[in-house]
Amino acid sequence: MSVTSAADGIKDVKTPLSDADVALLKAGDRVRISGVIYTARDAAHARLFPLLEKGEQLPVDVKGTIIYYTGPTPPREGDAIGSVGPTTASRMDKFTPALLEAGLKGTIGKGYRGQPVKDALRQYKGVYFGSIGGAGAVLSEFVKKAEVVAYEDLGTEAIRRLEVEGFPAIVLYDCHGGDLYQDGQKQYARG
């Protein structure tokens, strides 16, 4: 089991994830993610997508893993990575259902996603996590190792393999149709 509830009310999530693990995560859950995750954003997705369409092998195995939508700043000497917060996820919406179909279990980003992504999260058992946009300095502390594994020419947009420990996030959309944005905003709207 890769999802366990800790005494402090936060759920510990360890990659890789199975369908059963994903089912345990509910919108609004605070989580700590540990294990291997991959970064990819606009330019990397644009290269992955034709491979998926043609049924060719991807440069990384997405089965059970999590993609973090981010393009980090360069690391200072001795640091694993630079500032590393999330980018707006909806720009990757076009590509996400196909990746979920290929076995991707989670994405980390910020902002609303379209209905096709929400539907794909239900159909293929996936989860959309949010990390705090603009908190890149703090988030860098949870990345223990980073290496470029594909598309080095893309610079910050290259695919990086990250080893994370206790990376803080929140479940924005779960695989049961739960939506933190909807619930949270309804609660605080004042006419």
Binding site: G71, P72, T73, R76, G82, S83, I132, G133, A135, G136
Partner: peptide, 26 residues
């Protein structure tokens, strides 16, 4: 949740300043 975000942003500003790293990766 909102309070927690604001607290983390304060912490983020402090860390960026002391470590001389970018407040946001963008």
């Amino acid at each position: 949740a909102g309070k927690q975000v604001l607290q983390i942003l304060k912490q983020n500003a402090e860390m960026a300043r002391t470590k001389k790293i970018a407040y946001c990766q963008d």
